[in-house]
Simulated scan of single mutants.
Amino acid sequence: MTAAAPARRLEGRVHLITGAARGIGAAVARRLSAEGSAIAAADLDADGLAALAADLEATGTAVLTGRFDSRDSAATDRFVAETVERFGRLDGAVPCAGIARAARAEEMTDAAFADVLGINLTGVFYTCRAVGRVLLARGEGAIVTVASITARGGQPGRANYAASKWGLVGLTKTLALEWGGRGVRVNAVAPNGVDTPMIRDGIPPDFLDGVMLDRTPLGRLARPEEVAAVIAFLLGPDASYVNGAVVEVDGGLTAGFLTARNGADFASRTIPSPPAPGQQNRP
Rank of each mutant, 00 (worst) to 15 (best):
R138P: 08
R67M: 09
I17K: 04
A26N: 09
A5C: 07
A20Q: 06
C128W: 11
F87Y: 07
A75M: 04
A41W: 00
G118Q: 07
S148E: 03
A21S: 13
L32C: 07
V116H: 01
L44S: 08
G48Q: 01
R129W: 04
D72L: 05
A137E: 15
E107Y: 02
A62R: 15
T122A: 14
A26E: 11
V28F: 08
V146N: 10
T61D: 02
G25C: 01
R8F: 07
D91M: 01
A103C: 10
A93W: 00
A27S: 11
R89Q: 13
T65L: 05
G92I: 01
C128K: 08
T145R: 09
L16W: 01
R31H: 12
S33L: 07
R71Q: 14
A93C: 09
T83W: 02
G92T: 05
A51Q: 12
F113E: 05
T145N: 15
R31I: 09
S148Y: 09
G19N: 06
S148G: 09
A103V: 08
A147T: 13
D55M: 08
A130P: 10
I143G: 06
E140T: 14
V84M: 03
R101M: 08
L52W: 06
L90W: 05
D91Y: 00
A102S: 12
R30S: 10
E140A: 14
V134Y: 02
V131T: 07
G98H: 05
A62Q: 14
G141R: 00
G25Q: 01
T127F: 00
S70G: 15
A102F: 14
A7I: 12
R104G: 14
G12L: 05
T59N: 08
R22I: 00
F87V: 07
D55E: 15
I99V: 15
A26H: 10
E140V: 12
A42G: 12
D45Y: 04
R31M: 15
V28K: 03
A105S: 15
T76P: 11
A100F: 13
I24Q: 11
G48N: 02
A4C: 02
E82N: 11
S37H: 01
H15W: 04
R8C: 07
V63W: 04
A50V: 02
G60D: 05
L136N: 03
R101A: 11
L117G: 05
L56C: 04
T145S: 14
A46W: 00
C128T: 10
C96W: 03
A58C: 06
F87W: 08
A40V: 11
E107V: 10
R86A: 13
E85K: 12
D55F: 09
R104A: 15
T18I: 07
R22Q: 13
D45R: 05
G123I: 00
D77L: 10
E82S: 13
E106G: 00
R8K: 13
T127P: 01
T18L: 06
D77Y: 01
A93I: 03
L49N: 08
T61K: 02
D69N: 14
R129Y: 04
F68V: 10
D110K: 08
A62V: 04
A114E: 13
L121Y: 12
L32K: 03
A93L: 03
L135V: 06
D91C: 01
G23D: 09
R13G: 10
L32E: 04
G23S: 09
V134Q: 12
I17M: 02
N120A: 04
R101I: 07
S73H: 09
A151Q: 06
T127V: 13
V94A: 01
D55H: 12
L64Q: 14
L136Q: 10
G23N: 09
R71T: 13
